[in-house]
Design a protein around this nucleic acid. Structure first.
Length: 451
DNA sequence: TTAGGGTTAG
């Protein structure tokens, strides 16, 4: 005798397979259930939309939405939140806004979750003002921001350089009693403040974290340790690592990678290798970032063949080399003076389909100059469609070193006219150089754009 | 749906 499957039981089975990323099995459960006379409902379809958006892509989520409409089941706010989340996860920010507006035309009222994703989306698009407007529209929508809303606002403000806004929103929400900070909030604030250079404020927040009865976690420690290394307080960074270790927070590759990379940057390679050895002895597996640091260490030592072997090993371990791996290796080739090989590698990287190889190109331009091939560097520089402050600073700086001040000033003027800046010191060197060659009118042009 | 580690200029 064949029993009819209840909708609730079917949905539990579908959700379990979706969680395990076994989407085909989830679909086959639905087919079997239909054969037995049980039809999927809005919960079944929402589970599928969410899984396809999360594990496959947004288009697959859309296909489920269409199937849902064909089955005459109306999508609800949860359906759209899954699609919004899928668009956000795959960095399709404009699509996210489109979907949000589509909710309106479908007569679906967005909830706090929908607004949170929309806020995140505007921050990622570099539009903090818009994000802030949405945040302030909550009241008129009869919605109350939740802790994720606040955390997203703080983090977004920091990421877009609105440090003051982040801190004042934090203080005002505390004063008004509309928000109680969580450990996550404190970590967002400490990270943002450290990165903005607001060290005193960061210390104060760390103090408040402890006074609120929270204990710093692995993320708090890694954030502070990273900041110490960045601000050249090396010993203090090591002390943070030790404290972290004593409190049992060095259980993953994050802490070891941070410390090892800091040693490598200081040229203390033996200690950097020792940290990785310690990590392996603890039974912690290296992830791609750890391997990338190791590739960099071999490159710093000039062991380019060893680095190349490691690239193959990474793939053998089932990991996929990323932009960082390839850029680090490319930089190693340049550092070892293997320019032709590096130029071939750069072409190879172009075929890998990364979003941008800007860092790799910057690296190539700088290293070519350093090995005395500034004309080759200039050719690459002129071919580059996207350039940033680093590209210009590197080119101008190296041309000045070769006393090619007129060429340097042309590059600098192009940079300033595009609204980008190079270090003030570099600009001064150009002006001084032009004066030394008697090129006073060219020097005036640069000085005019100085301010 | 929100936080931490890796590459390039000075």
């Amino acid at each position: 005798m064949v029993c009819k499957l209840s909708t609730k039981l079917m949905n539990i089975c579908v959700a379990s397979f979706c969680k395990l990323q076994q989407l085909e099995k989830a679909e086959s459960i639905i087919i079997d259930a239909i054969r037995l006379g049980t039809l999927p409902d809005v919960v079944t379809y929402n589970t599928l939309v969410s899984a396809y958006c999360h594990f496959v892509d947004l288009d697959s989520g859309y296909l489920i939405l269409n199937r849902m409409k064909e089955a005459k089941i109306h999508p609800n706010v949860i359906t759209y939140n899954s699609l919004l989340s899928g668009a956000s996860k795959h960095s399709l920010h404009s699509k996210c806004i489109e979907l949000f507006n589509e909710m309106g035309t479908m007569g679906i009222q967005p909830d706090v979750w929908s607004y949170n994703i929309l806020i995140q989306c505007y921050f990622r698009l570099g539009k903090p003002e818009e994000a802030n407007m949405i945040f302030h529209s909550f009241k008129s929508q009869n919605l109350s921001p939740c802790s994720t809303t606040f955390n997203t606002m703080f983090n977004g403000f920091f990421k877009t350089g609105y440090t003051h806004h982040a801190l004042s929103l934090f203080r005002s929400s505390q004063r008004n009693g509309i928000f109680t900070p969580e450990l996550l909030t404190y970590n967002i604030l400490i990270n943002g403040l450290c990165k903005s250079g607001w060290i005193r404020a960061a210390r104060m927040i760390l103090k408040e974290l402890k006074e609120s009865g929270f204990k710093p976690n692995a993320i708090t420690y890694t954030t502070i340790m990273k900041h110490c290394f960045k601000s050249r307080k090396f010993q203090e960074g090591i002390e943070v690592f030790n404290e972290m270790k004593n409190n049992g927070y060095t259980y993953d590759a994050f802490s070891y990678s941070t410390l090892s990379s800091a040693f490598a940057k200081k040229g203390r390679l033996e200690e950097a290798y020792r940290i990785f050895k310690l990590m392996t002895e603890k039974g912690i597996e290296k992830d791609l970032v750890s391997y990338n640091i190791l590739v960099n260490m071999y490159c710093i030592e000039g062991k380019i063949d060893k680095a190349n072997d490691l690239l193959s090993e990474i793939q053998e371990f089932g990991l996929q080399c990323d932009q960082y791996t390839h850029t680090t290796f490319l930089d190693g080739l340049c550092r070892s003076g293997e320019i032709d090989r590096a130029l071939d590698y750069l072409k190879y990287m172009d075929t890998l389909g990364f979003d941008s190889n800007l860092v790799a190109y910057n690296c190539m331009v700088d290293r070519l100059c350093k090995v005395g091939c500034s004309n080759d560097a200039l050719r690459i520089f002129e071919r580059m469609e996207v350039k940033d402050c680093i590209t210009y600073t590197s080119m101008v700086h190296n041309l000045c070193k070769e006393r090619k001040f007129l060429t340097a000033s042309k590059v600098l003027l192009a940079c300033l006219n595009r609204g980008m800046k190079v270090l003030r010191g570099t600009q001064r060197v150009v002006v001084k150089g032009l004066h030394s060659l008697g090129l006073y009118s060219e020097a005036r042009k640069v000085q005019y754009l100085f301010h």
